[in-house]
Amino acid sequence: MSDRKTLLRRLTLIAALSALGAAVGALERPLMALIPLPLPGFKLGLANLTVLFTAYRLRRRDAFLVMGVRVALVNLAFGTPVSLALALSGGLCSAAVTAAFCRSRTLSPVGVSCAASAAHMAGQIAMAAVILSTPALFLTYLPWLLLLSIPTGLLNGALSIPLIRRVPARLTVFPAAPKP
């Protein structure tokens, strides 16, 4: 495959995955509103499946793009400047952790997803602590979000495994095996 064609396919895939992530993220908002949990900042994070998939099946740096575009889309459409800042900070942390760990031989996507989920909470709280100038959030709020990040991380990790394995290789630019 020529370089230009590869680039084009990669770009198209990133765009499609970003849009898919944004759609899942947008659908998740009313879903989370149904669950009466008094924990702002908590959601299932199903949209992060696209970032996980991207990190495993495309290039790791593409995960940052997919995260940024989907977070920006959802928050520009439904959010506020504050929600955008929180989601970007959390997303950046979780994408960084995903990119760092997804080639690890000791971690399955489940572990990567749990780490990413926890990193998202930490990044989100870090930004919230700055915006509200309340560093105490790290002690009062972050622990609960971290505890909740485990079940959501497990859920996303478990869902990501069939996605990463079963989506046909011809749909993605690179084969499932990591490139050197």
Binding site: S104, R105, T106, L107, S108, P109, V110, G111, V112, C114, A115, A118, F138, L139, L142, P143, W144, L146, L147, S149, I150, G153, L154, G157, I161, I164, R165
Partner: peptide, 26 residues
């Protein structure tokens, strides 16, 4: 793609961090 040992380490690390943050102010 089965669960690997690292996964348990990650989960344990998150739990320990959460517990530490929760109890250190006390």
């Amino acid at each position: 793609m089965k669960l690997r040992t690292g996964d348990a380490v990650v989960i344990a690390a998150v739990l320990v961090t959460a517990a530490f943050l929760l109890f250190c102010p006390r």
